[in-house]
Computed example of a mutant assay.
Amino acid sequence: MKTYVFCTGVLLMLSFSLAGMTWAAALTLRGASNRFGPLTAVAIGFTSLIVLIAALAWSVPAREAA
């Protein structure tokens, strides 16, 4: 597989994950605050995306030296 195809797929996966997490947070916060709701939803989306990336990076085994 070409590197740019893989990288494009990973970027699409992360952007769709961010969109989904932001949407879920916005639905949850809809009744809480009209003023800071969208900003809080984006912050929650970015925070959960960083946690997801950290968990994925931690779960990958270390590469052995040749």
Score class of each variant (00 low, 15 high):
L49E: 12
C7W: 15
R30Y: 07
R30C: 08
V42D: 14
S15L: 11
P38R: 00
S48E: 13
A43K: 13
V5H: 05
A62P: 11
L39P: 01
T40W: 06
T22V: 11
A41F: 00
F36T: 13
V42Y: 05
K2H: 13
T8N: 10
T22E: 10
L14R: 08
A32G: 02
Y4C: 08
L52G: 07
E64Y: 02
G37N: 02
E64S: 04
V51H: 05
M21A: 14
R63S: 11
L14Q: 02
S15Y: 11
L12K: 05
F6L: 13
E64F: 06
G31R: 06
T3Q: 05
A66Y: 08
S48Y: 06
A57W: 12
R35W: 06
L39V: 06
R30M: 09
A62I: 10
C7P: 14
F6H: 10
V42Q: 13
A25I: 03
L12Q: 12
L18A: 02
M1Y: 10
A43D: 05
S15Q: 07
L29S: 01
L52W: 13
M21V: 10
V51Q: 06
M21W: 14
W58S: 12
T28I: 04
A24H: 10
T28C: 05
V10L: 04
G45P: 00
V5F: 05
R35S: 10
S59G: 07
M1T: 07
T8V: 14
S15R: 03
A19L: 02
S59K: 08
A57R: 10
L56C: 01
W23L: 11
E64Q: 07
M13W: 14
A54N: 08
W58A: 14
M21I: 08
L11W: 08
T8D: 07
T47D: 08
L29K: 00
I44L: 04
A25C: 05
T22K: 13
Y4F: 12
L49M: 11
G9F: 03
A26I: 01
S15K: 03
A26P: 00
V10P: 03
A54G: 06
T28A: 02
A41W: 00
F36P: 10
L49Q: 08
P61G: 00
A24K: 13
T22M: 12
G31M: 03
F36R: 11
S48A: 12
S17H: 13
L29C: 02
G37L: 01
E64M: 06
L52E: 15
